[in-house]
Amino acid sequence: MRQDSRLSRMLHVLIHMGRHDGAMTSDRIASMLDANAVVIRRTMAGLREKGYVHSVKGHGGGWTLARPLCELTLLDIHRAVGEPSIFAVGPAYDMPGCPIEKAVNATLEGVLEDARRLLMERFASVTLADIAGSFPEADKVEEVMDRNG
């Protein structure tokens, strides 16, 4: 099963944006992520709808943060990118009349819901500024970004 990396990729982009002076174009972001600029624009539009980024068209335009990193949480961005599935495991519905399958499914659903709730609580407690503070100073990050895209 292929992992959904939308959350990770957008966290990456937003933290770069928080450390970058000026707007970042969709093409630059796409180059940084080795992605298609159309996909970037579509994803960023979801962030814009939530009020997390602004966009400006034309020469010198691009994407900028609408809020500081300290006001954005993992939960905010998770929701803005469409709440990708957290778990690859889940119940099976092969034998709907089987009481064992029903018991297994009920137990799995309860455990997974508890885990999802705990994860969302943790997502709500971590800001993008928390992540941004966990790696080297901005000039080294920008140097890598400029070199890679």
Rank of each mutant, 00 (worst) to 15 (best):
H54S: 02
A35K: 10
L75S: 08
C70P: 03
K50N: 01
E109I: 13
L108N: 06
I77D: 09
N36P: 01
L33P: 02
W63A: 01
E83Y: 03
R19K: 11
D34S: 15
H78P: 08
T43F: 00
G18V: 03
H12F: 09
L33T: 01
A106N: 06
Y93E: 14
E83L: 12
I15W: 00
L75A: 13
I77K: 10
H54Y: 12
I86L: 15
A37I: 09
E71T: 03
K102N: 14
M17L: 10
P68N: 05
Y93A: 14
P91M: 04
H78M: 09
F87E: 14
P84S: 04
A106K: 05
C98L: 06
S55G: 01
G18F: 08
G82L: 11
Y93W: 12
L47C: 02
G58I: 04
E101H: 08
H12Q: 09
A80W: 14
G18S: 00
I86E: 15
P99G: 07
R28A: 03
W63N: 05
L69T: 04
M24Y: 04
A37M: 07
H59F: 01
I100A: 13
S31I: 00
L69A: 09
N105G: 10
P84H: 05
G46A: 05
I40E: 01
H20T: 14
L69Y: 07
V56D: 13
A103P: 03
T107V: 14
V56E: 13
G51S: 08
R28H: 10
P91E: 15
S55Q: 14
R19D: 09
R19S: 06
T43E: 12
A37Q: 10
A23F: 10
A37C: 06
V81R: 10
G61W: 02
S26N: 13
R79D: 06
I40A: 06
L74F: 04
P96E: 04
H59R: 12
G22T: 03
P91A: 06
H54F: 15
H12K: 09
P99V: 13
M17S: 02
A106L: 05
V81Y: 00
I86R: 11
R41S: 07
L72P: 03
F87G: 11
R79E: 15
G58F: 08
D76N: 14
V104E: 15
P91Y: 06
K50W: 06
C98E: 15
L47E: 12
H59E: 02
T43N: 05
T107G: 14
Y93M: 15
R79P: 04
H16C: 01
H12P: 00
S55P: 02
H20F: 03
A88E: 11
G51I: 04
E49F: 09
G58W: 00
D76F: 04
E71K: 09
F87P: 03
S55V: 10
S85I: 11
G82Q: 15
G82A: 08
M95E: 13
I15L: 03
N105F: 01
A92T: 08
G58V: 01
D34H: 12
S85F: 01
G60E: 01
M44C: 08
K50G: 02
R48L: 05
R67Q: 05
D94F: 14
R67G: 03
L69M: 05
V89D: 12
D27Y: 00
